[in-house]
Design a binder for these strands. Structure first.
Lengths: 159, 159
DNA sequence: TATTGTTATACTCTATAACTATA
DNA sequence: TATAGTTATAGAGTATAACAATA
């Protein structure tokens, strides 16, 4: 068996068990959880030929079709130059299309193609199931608490 | 003609306000917080010429100097091939050095150089301050709760 | 002048596979 | 055979800067 894929054991309790302040420990825990979660989600998407960033685009368009590239850049927290490449790829794959805005000829609005919508619908359940499997370990009350805390933290991040 | 949009806040309430289950909402909130946090931390590190991954290496070695590349790969949740490039860069920068293990000549153990240790000590306070500024919005009791929940989630991710 | 999208460039991170040198 | 590290290759994401078309 080739050990090509990811390892499974955090062999080194390097950072988690040291007696730091709880803010720092919570931050490290979040970064590590994200790393794990990202890999789980990526693996699930790879079966559909999607990257996480591309799935993000599809999901964003599912709920906000017709947004501009600039708006997408702001939502995804990346630069507009980055969005160009991102959209180039999903457009080349036939999942998204750019349409000129008749009112402002500078902007291009983004729409899902039928194939893109179909793919999004196909990939979504697996992602949901994965999230449910992991986050389902917490009770609904805990999930609400978690969500509220994360929202406050994100607000602190922006402001 | 339209009033200038503020591109600093997430203009699209696309995913957060839809009536999904709390597990999904919590997951999305976490992914978004991570995105923001990652950028904040990266910006702080860029001033020191460090990437987040490189800072991770330095911090890991600060607390577990002498680990092998394989152990580092497991800890960072990446492949060993990835670690080679990562260490190549921090070694070229003069922050880390590989040392042959006399007992098993296959392995190379990783150590911080004086410059690396100095840089880690210089970069750390800013990162801590940033974490404190953000996570300080929660009380210590909340931070403990958050940490516990995140740890349970990470466990669910692995197992 | 400012804004939207684009191109050009470069770097980092990541994964896969095949390879080496040890064990 | 198995393991630690390496090389080679590829692709994806990111940032920066300069640019064109349009407002």
């Amino acid at each position: 068996m080739s050990p090509t894929r990811k390892p499974e054991k955090p062999a080194l309790p390097v950072l988690n068990d040291d007696p730091r302040s709880w803010d720092f420990r919570a931050a490290v825990a979040m970064l590590r959880l994200h790393g794990r979660l990202e890999r789980c989600l990526s693996d699930g998407l790879a079966a559909h030929g999607l990257t996480l960033a591309q799935f993000d685009v599809l999901m964003t368009l599912c709920h906000g079709e017709g947004i501009t590239q600039q708006e997408l850049a702001e939502w995804l927290l990346v630069t507009k130059a980055n969005v160009v490449g991102l959209i180039d790829r999903v457009e080349a794959a036939g999942w998204v299309e750019r349409r000129a805005d008749p009112e402002d000829r500078r902007v291009k609005r983004l729409y899902l193609t039928d194939a893109g919508r179909k793919l999004a619908r196909k990939a979504q359940p697996g992602q949901h199931a994965l999230v449910r499997r992991i986050f389902g370990r917490l009770s609904e009350a805990e999930l609400r608490q978690l969500h509220a805390m994360l929202a406050r933290l994100e607000e602190a991040c922006s402001g």
